[in-house]
């Protein structure tokens, strides 16, 4: 059953057709990869799904609910969590506080509760702290919960961003280049971690990735974008052999995209 379904999604920025009539579908408990050369419209597609951009045409539904015109915070509430391509943590908050903010849409206490600090608020806070600690433990940051996010090493920041996204209790998790800037060892660990998200938490995951080893390792299906157009879709091995995909990456001009390896844009 499809958890996210996009039909004919199109987005223009002035004269640039960033995403052109893309159909896309992801099923429950599936890891889908979104690949393509730099500027292919992958992140734009993410931003449309998460409500940062509104599509010019087309429809998107999540769990059979249209989410096309919803604001980002509403979409998060419905169950789509995300990370960002260039890590965007709350830099001068601690790791724990970052995860607490992630739980924002699952907590209820408001201004009055905050001031009076009644029983339900206290219980909620205690629960939120415990859950934040659990999530930090899940990503292996339990020792670093009181570090300011900006002082964490790069790999930890990536992990914290995932913990923060998990705190929103997503059904679908969007990861935008999770391995950008990681070394092979960290990438291997992350591959394993993404598999755990699917098996242990039962999440559906959509990831944008340039690291083909990761894509081959975890994705059930891969969608390839080029100049905003979906040019191919299928299993990772199919995509590896698909002539259009190879052309998109290597064939246009001699100088573009020499390797498919690490292309952090």
């Amino acid at each position: 059953m499809a958890i996210l379904e996009a039909k004919g999604v199109t987005k223009r920025f002035g004269g640039l057709l960033a995403v052109d009539a893309v159909d896309f579908q992801i099923d429950e408990r599936m890891i889908a990869g979104l690949i393509g050369p730099n500027g292919a419209g992958k992140t734009t597609f993410f931003n449309i799904v998460t409500g940062v951009h509104r599509p010019d045409s087309g429809s998107i539904s999540f769990c059979d609910r249209t989410i096309k015109n919803l604001k980002p915070h509403r979409i998060t509430e419905l169950g789509i969590g995300r990370t960002f391509q260039n890590i965007r943590l709350f830099a001068s908050m601690t790791a724990l506080e970052n995860v607490l903010v992630g739980q924002h849409c699952r907590l209820r206490s408001g201004v009055v509760g905050a001031i009076v600090r009644d029983m339900s608020t206290q219980n909620e806070e205690r629960y939120a702290w415990r859950r934040a600690e659990e999530l930090l433990e899940f990503v292996g940051l339990q020792e670093k919960q009181d570090f300011l996010a900006k002082n964490l090493p790069y790999g930890d920041q990536r992990r914290l961003e995932i913990a923060r996204a998990l705190a929103t209790r997503p059904k679908l998790l969007l990861l935008d280049e999770p391995t950008a800037g990681m070394n092979p060892q960290e990438t291997r660990e992350l591959t394993e971690f993404i598999r755990r998200l699917k098996t242990e938490l039962g999440l559906s995951i959509l990831l944008i990735e340039h690291d083909m080893k990761l894509v081959m390792g975890v994705c059930d299906r891969v969608t390839v974008l080029d100049y905003g157009v979906k040019i191919a879709e299928g299993t990772p091995t199919e995509m590896q052999r698909n002539p259009r995909v190879i052309e998109a990456y290597l064939g246009r001009t001699a100088s573009s995209q020499p390797g498919v390896g690490h292309g952090a844009s």
């Binding site: 604001k71 965007r88 506080e97 907590l107």
Partner: peptide, 28 residues
């Protein structure tokens, strides 16, 4: 009291990064 609450955290998150705060479900 507000500072150390869900509300205060949402404010600080908004100050740090509006888009990320929205992605965490904060109604800007």
């Amino acid at each position: 009291r507000l500072e150390n609450s869900r509300v205060g955290r949402a404010w600080v998150a908004m100050r740090e990064d509006e888009d990320a705060a929205a992605a965490m479900g904060v109604d800007l």
